[in-house]
Design a protein around this nucleic acid. Structure first.
Lengths: 238, 238
DNA sequence: ACCTGAACACCGTTCAAGT
DNA sequence: ACCTGAACACCGTTCAAGT
């Protein structure tokens, strides 16, 4: 937890780079030039160093990105969640989304169904806990977390992808044309939506969607309890 | 729609490459070596040609990937969907997932909230249509499609990411350790899950999750209708 | 029209050497 | 211990030239 190079004896020259400085520079590039410009080489240039010097402070690029997420999560203000379980489940899920919304690029590097980063674990804990307090068995609560996680990730990945395309090239006519050419016999509904599609899909409805997902999960729980109760009655013990 | 080089006069030599042959070779690489190995250069090598020759048959790599998805969707057998609206909504959503499950790599290239490819549009139409027949106004049906889309995409992106990590390096101890180190005071729920986490999150619960999402969306609809009805009563006309 | 070779402007990472 | 330079093995794409 000490800043490196502070306590060390006078062996060798003081390090020019540090993990902290690297993360700061990386975040600067992320903010000013976007995630697609963040490379080890570009980062080294930003620090007037060489790409290889970075590898003395981070294992590889993936670790760098995870450290960036971790730092972001550590900075993120930890909100007070409502006490009523269902509202808390929804609120915690919203926090998960909001926390990651600032760095949707991270989705590409996250391999999980694992958790996010250590600093964001409290969000996962909150979600699972709220789900349990809603009456779910622990395993179902984990499953509920996963559904929420998939939904959240999906929204973020699409947002990131949309931004990537937008920044790469402006070709707005392409998709709009596709919508005009729709056969109204084969595609009556999409045809009825027509040009409104773009407007409808651009809206930020994450919250509303989250409400639906949470509601669905809780409804499923109720049914499952019913089924479980029946099963217990049928086969009294084991 | 004619195979190129068939009807053309005897101007120039016959083309060695064709879009069809390119897509076939690309699919071969995808199947045998995985999506991360599919590059324009690798593809050219596969065809004993040069990377630049490919650019006479596809605009760029993105178009290549979209064409691959399109071809896959065209091959995909179009199932008969159940007629009951709610079951149909669920079934159509499942088809969307299954269709894309064979090529999760495509998620990285899809910018949408737009639709998939033209050949898969019927799935989108089915979902929106089923949602409408469940009693949703058209705009809500599009919104329902988006929620389903986000959920599906999220699951696929995570699956793709997991496969990517698995193929890149086997480091299973890393995350397992993290789970042991959890503070049982700060993280009672995650602590209780403990080692079971990996097993729980590896399960394929997409169907069950989809049921929850669909149920939640339909429940929301019911409430919205209630609210809308109230609103109508309050302000009779306009 | 179709294809090639060389080039541009990049990547992440390894390795041997320097201080 | 910390950093550098050169190298390895790649990318997608452009451009001018060939047949």
């Amino acid at each position: 937890m000490e800043t490196r190079g502070q306590r060390s004896g006078r062996t060798g020259r003081p390090p020019r780079l540090s993990q902290e400085a690297i993360l700061l520079a990386a975040q600067r590039i992320l903010d000013t030039e976007g995630p697609e410009r963040l490379s080890m080489r570009r980062l080294a240039r930003e620090m007037s160093s060489t790409a290889m010097a970075l590898y003395h402070h981070v294992q590889d690029k993936d670790e760098l990105l995870l450290l960036l997420l971790d730092a972001h999560a550590r900075r993120y203000p930890r909100p007070v969640l409502p006490s009523e379980p269902r509202t808390r489940l929804l609120a915690a899920a919203q926090v998960l989304h909001d926390l990651l919304a600032d760095c949707p690029w991270i989705v590409e590097v996250l391999s999980f169904d694992d958790f996010v980063s250590e600093s964001a674990l409290w969000v996962v804990e909150s979600i699972v806990d709220a789900a349990v307090e809603c009456g779910m068995p622990l395993e179902d609560a984990v499953y509920a977390y996963r559904v929420i996680w998939h939904y959240t990730t999906g929204e973020l990945a699409i947002r990131a992808s949309r931004e990537r395309v937008r920044s790469r090239a402006e070709r707005p006519e392409y998709r709009e044309h596709a919508l005009e050419l729709l056969d109204s016999v084969d595609f009556p509904r999409l045809n009825a939506v027509g040009r409104r599609w773009a407007g409808l899909t651009a809206r930020d409805d994450h919250r509303k969607g989250l409400e639906a997902v949470v509601a669905g999960l809780l409804e499923q729980k109720t049914q499952a309890v019913g089924v479980a109760a029946d099963a217990v009655r049928a086969r009294p013990c084991c």
